[in-house]
Structure formats: C-alpha cells, structure tokens
Amino acid sequence: MTDTLLEIDHLSVDYETGRGDLKALRDITFDVNKGEIVGIVGESGCGKSTLISSILRLTAPNTRFREGEIRFKGQDLLQSSERHMRELRGADISIVFQDPMQTHNPVLTIGQQMLDIQHRSKQSKPDKLAHAAKMLGAVGIPDPEARLKQYPHEFSGGMRQRIAIAMALMSEPDLLIADEPTTALDATLEVQIIERLQELQREFHCAILFISHHLGVIAELCERVVVMYAGAVVESGEVREIFHNPKHPYTRRLIECDPGHIKERARVLPTIPGEVPDLANLPGGCIFRDRCDQAMARCATEVPPLDQLKEGHHAACWLNHEEVTT
C-alpha cells in the first residue's frame, strides 16, 4: 500500500455567470500517490485548468466549490485558511504553467525572481543566489551565474520553460503540477523537457500531476492516466492498460486521433465529430452521447457511473455494464 499524497474526492466546481452556473467540474475523483506521475488528458475546455487552480485555490472570484474535497496529505484544502494555502504554494505544491513566454515577470531579472520565491528560506542572499544558479545548472542552462542577471526576454522559449521547472523544483516540493508544459514548444524541445522532467523527478522524488493533450507524452512519462471530458472523469487507470485496452469510446477516439497513432497516409486527419456540450446547460444522460457512435437508448436517460472494471481501471460507459465487477 503506497502513501496517498493528493486525493480529489467527488469534487464539483461551478462558475457563476450571467447565463447561469457553468458546471466546470462534476464529481471528479482520483488520487496521486507519493512520488508517482499521474497524467490528465482531455481536449480544451474539459476542466483541466479549473482543476489545477482549485488545487492551489487560485481561482477566479466567481468560482463556487459545490461539493467534494481536495485532500493534500490528509488535509482538506478547500477548508484550509488562506494563510495555510500560501504556505503550501511554491513550497509543498509547485506549478509549471503552460506558456513559458508569459510566465515570468518581464521587468525583473531571473535572479531577482528566483530570490523572491525563496522568501521562506532563512539563507543569506548570496546563498540563495548560489542555490538559484545551481538549479539553473540542473535544468541545463549554461553559465547560470551570469544568466541570473538577465531578463526573461533574453531567453528562448525552451530555456524559459526550463527556468520555470527549475523555479518549481527549487523548494523540493512533494507535488509538482505541470500544466501542459510542452504545448507551446516545438517537438524537439518537448522531448528535451520531458527527459529533463523525468531525470529531476528521479532526483527529487516528487509526485507529478502532468496535464497534457498529447497522448504520446503521457504514455512516455506517466504511470497512471485520468481521461477527462467536459468536466468529468470518463476513464482512469494504468497507462499501459488504458492505451491497450481503452474502455470508454472517448478514450478510443482520442487514441485514434493522436498523430503518433496514425499509420496510413490520409487525406483528412481523423477527428471526433460534434462539439463539447454546453456546461451551463448539460443534457441528461451520458455527456459523450451526442458524439458517440455506439450510443444506446439508455445513454440518453441515465448517467453512466465511473465503475471499477478491474484493479486500477475505471470507466464511465454503459457498454461495460456486463463486465462491472463491483
């Protein structure tokens, strides 16, 4: 039995808007163990960003936590004081954001920003700078002492993302959240960043919650994967199991659409027809029904539960109903 670090327990989050409540997350349940890499995959608007900002509690003012808990080391973050949250941010939980070009302050030097995030440390300023330079060296920035004096715009996108990773790992966090860290970078850089992340994870033993819509990267990096669709978990389990034996039509279509899986030359790249349902006005039944080619009468009326199909594999689809073991 491994130690659980982060538990998302039946989490439902709404956004209050002019046209009613937007049900951004509904009944999300999964957990991340200590030192484990868990991937979250899903298309734009599936609620990945809401999930991240909920964990850090850096949500927009119109966010409403309707139900559920986010437990970190057993403590419910949604009930924690703002003071406690600030103690966690950048210390026990760190984050690498999506767009490396926007993630650093443009008018402060990298060194100044790396000094600022060590605000909890009692070390002297030269020691903090030395620590910052060491971290830059660890992510492969050459001549780190000199580069601490430079501004973000003097670095390339790939370098900025590596700096962001260095900053996130500086406090040796227990949990690193990586929000599509390679989406804004080109393919060769993506491989570099992923390899660097793997090395660092082995060195620092932190758990990583890796958000991506790139299935190849998830398969490469993660042990377990959570597939999200329109604010809900549709399938979760071991990466190998999910990729070889997907049990939800959405996961199957995602794998078919992944460029890495397309073997034959095609005039038109495969897509999933249809659109994500309106989160402010959700239809009854299964949320994927309108885009599913295997939809049945039952899918229109009843919401399929996220059932355990075998040890470590859950899916929410009526097609699996006969196989359900519990």
Binding site: L58, R89, D99, T103, H104, N105, D116
Partner: peptide, 22 residues
Amino acid sequence: GESHVRTARAFGIAERRVVMVY
C-alpha cells in the same frame, strides 16, 4: 490578469509584494 502575476501567487509570494512590485 497576466500569467506572471499568477505565477508569483502560485509561489506563495505575499500579495502585498505581488501588487507593489510585480
């Protein structure tokens, strides 16, 4: 509303410093 302010907050930098400096 820019991302770098969100980054500063995500590192637990005091709100006062985020507003006054960042």
